[in-house]
Amino acid sequence: MTVVRAVARRLATAAVVLWAAATAAYLALLLAPGDTVDSIIGDGPDTPQIRAQVIAEWGLDRPDVVQYLDYLARAARGDLGRSYLLQRPVSDLIGEHLPATVTLAAAAAVTGVVLALAVALLTAGRRPLLRRAASTTELVLVSTPGFLIGIVLLNVFSFRLGWFPVSGGQDFSALVLPALTLALPVAGVLTQVLRDGLERALDEPFVVTARSRGIRERAVLARHALRHALLPAITLVGWLSGILLGGAVITEQVFGRPGLGQVTLQAVTAKDMPVVLAVVLLSAAVYVAVSTLADLAYLLVDPRLRRS
């Protein structure tokens, strides 16, 4: 019973978040300068007849509120509309470009988490010199803008060494540098949080007890300290999904990769309202899903949060 209610409350919250995101984006685009008809016509022939035809076809003569409600009603049914610019259903457009972005984001997330775990476990509470070097590198990575990291990586590994292609999105080798660009700042923050958590846990009395049982230092870290360090890291998962989505837009631009980033940038510049709204809704949906997973992960890691 309580489980059903908890799930219901969660879903209702998710719906409210999605609605708020859609509405905010709708308002922002409505208030942006420029005329919708101009956006739809683009570079095509512009005559009064064509204008009238466009207005009639897209229902732009209706009041804003009606257009907004109509948009909401159709979005709720899963109909995201047609792109003004490309004259194609938005869902096709997104479906086409989503896989490339998901691949990039997933590769970056895995790389970032693995890097962070490895560095944090290697340097937590030991090896003072290595720890200081790692900590400095992390700070540099966190405070460097993503595009700069991308350009530096391109310069070294593509232009000078020629190990990886400069641009494109065809094969695995083209994925390496963009994924790294996105992963490095993420790894920087995660490492700092994980190491701090590990060092805090290593100071706790239960670690003395664990060591007094004769287990290896590796087991002290893996079985005891790491779980405690994961708790603050889980809090960052929501932030992580935001960084990856936002970072993907810039990274795809720097490396000339196809993907949602390019689609979004194009849509925003051309005021292609249906596409922008769809991207916003998608981001919000991902964020809600990831936050829910993070909450569940908390329960999994920390038994004290479970209700008996």
Binding site: E204, P205, V208, H224
Partner: peptide, 13 residues
Amino acid sequence: LQDALVSLDPLRT
């Protein structure tokens, strides 16, 4: 050790 609340790992059975 003293005080098993902090001397036993709270995340393990």
